[in-house]
Amino acid sequence: MIEFSMRKAALAAFCATFASASNAQGNTVEGWTILRHNESGACVMEKVNEDGYLFRIGKTEAGGRFEYVAVYTKDKDVKLYGNVAKKVEIDMDGLRFPAKATGDLRDDGYRGAYVKTDDPAFSEALARKYVLTVDPDSKTPFAISLDGTFKAMAATSDCEAESMAASTVSDDSKRGELEAAAQASWASLLGQNERAKEMSESATAALVFPKVTKAGLGIGAETGNGVLYEGDVSTGYYRTSSVAVGALAGVQTYGYAIMFMSDDALAKFKSKKGYELGVDGSIAVIEAGATAKVDTTNIKADTVAFVFDEKGLMASAAVEGSRIKPIN
């Protein structure tokens, strides 16, 4: 157990520059609160420990890699100097990173310092490791629990994707680009795959995500925007996200279409603010390589999914567990 006086001495070695995420909605994941700044759209994750220290993990810009780790306190006895830098060493479960800590004095009463790095392995370690220790070989090491960071980092990226998705559909030209891409993907799927064409004739509606992109190293999040079609009419815009369970190994982008096989299945989907495939309704994923002709009378699932890339239908690409939310 590190004594409080030791924590004071080491505090200046580790914190973040992100100003307080004002006017943001908070969502707690694994003990970390996810905050989004309304103006920039950037999201950060933070938590306060039993001693009142605020820990924060953040980014330089929305959609980028996690680069900042911070510790703040309101203890006025802690001696800190704004913008004064000091070399430190970061240990995460035995993995060492040399770094530079810079003091940060905020206007809201919090005082601390931050470490910024461009090393992608640092982001990976933040997501995968359990304890971060500053200057582990010194007399005043400072340890931070990384419990729950993997899911919280994915939620932070999801938070930013939601913000960017809302911006996309609020812009007429970008909304037009999304609809054009969705229509092209849908036409390509039906034109290249007889099974998809046959099932579309029985479907009540289709939700098409033309491009789902893996967000980055370490966090594992995948996001994309899509359009819901009822007949030939687009009736809504949606965002999909998952924790890197959808794409094949090495695949950075893919798309998928969901067909709702009954009015009840569509109504159930539209009634929810957040819909999880395979949980809120049954789903059958039709894979490439299936040789048997699809008998639509034997499909018992609420929804049927086809996953594809620029080469056509993909094999063994799971979308179960993906979360779908309307874009407001």
Rank of each mutant, 00 (worst) to 15 (best):
G52S: 03
I327H: 09
K268G: 07
E61R: 09
A127T: 06
L189E: 01
P136Q: 05
T204C: 07
A62C: 10
A187G: 05
F4G: 01
H37S: 08
L126T: 00
K100L: 14
M6E: 12
G148C: 10
G176R: 10
K86W: 08
D295R: 07
A24Y: 10
E230G: 13
G220M: 11
S22W: 01
A318L: 15
I258S: 00
G274E: 15
N225M: 14
S271G: 04
R7C: 01
K268T: 06
Y256G: 01
G41C: 03
K87W: 14
K273H: 12
D158A: 15
T303L: 03
A21T: 14
E222H: 07
G82S: 05
L217I: 15
D137T: 13
D118W: 14
T149D: 06
K325P: 09
V48T: 02
G250L: 03
G321N: 03
M259K: 01
M45S: 04
F18D: 08
E46D: 11
T156N: 04
S185Y: 05
V233A: 14
A244Q: 12
L178N: 06
I286G: 01
K311G: 11
K293S: 13
A206P: 01
A155T: 01
F18A: 08
F122W: 10
T296D: 12
K74D: 00
T204V: 11
V84D: 10
G26F: 15
V233Y: 15
E276I: 03
E310Q: 13
V233I: 15
A113Q: 07
L126S: 01
D171K: 10
I34K: 02
P136Y: 08
A267H: 12
F260Y: 02
H37A: 09
V69M: 07
V88T: 02
G52Q: 03
L313S: 06
T297Y: 04
K129N: 09
Y72W: 13
V279F: 00
A317C: 13
D107F: 12
K214C: 08
G278T: 12
G321W: 03
E276P: 02
T60F: 02
V319C: 05
E67T: 12
E30G: 02
S123Y: 02
A305W: 03
F150V: 14
E287S: 12
S234F: 11
S271T: 02
D119A: 14
K197N: 09
F14D: 03
R65D: 11
G82K: 00
K211C: 09
V279I: 02
G64Q: 01
N83I: 02
S185I: 04
K87Y: 11
Y68R: 05
L11N: 01
L105F: 03
S170W: 11
K87I: 13
S145C: 04
D119P: 11
S322F: 11
M261L: 06
E89Q: 14
L217P: 11
G52D: 04
A284L: 00
G148Q: 09
V245F: 12
G26Y: 15
A187V: 08
R7N: 01
K47G: 00
A143E: 00
E222S: 07
V44Y: 10
R7H: 04
D104T: 01
P136M: 07
M6D: 13
F308I: 11
E177K: 11
N27Q: 15
S185L: 07
A152E: 06
R56K: 12
D107E: 13
G216I: 11
G216W: 09
Y72V: 01
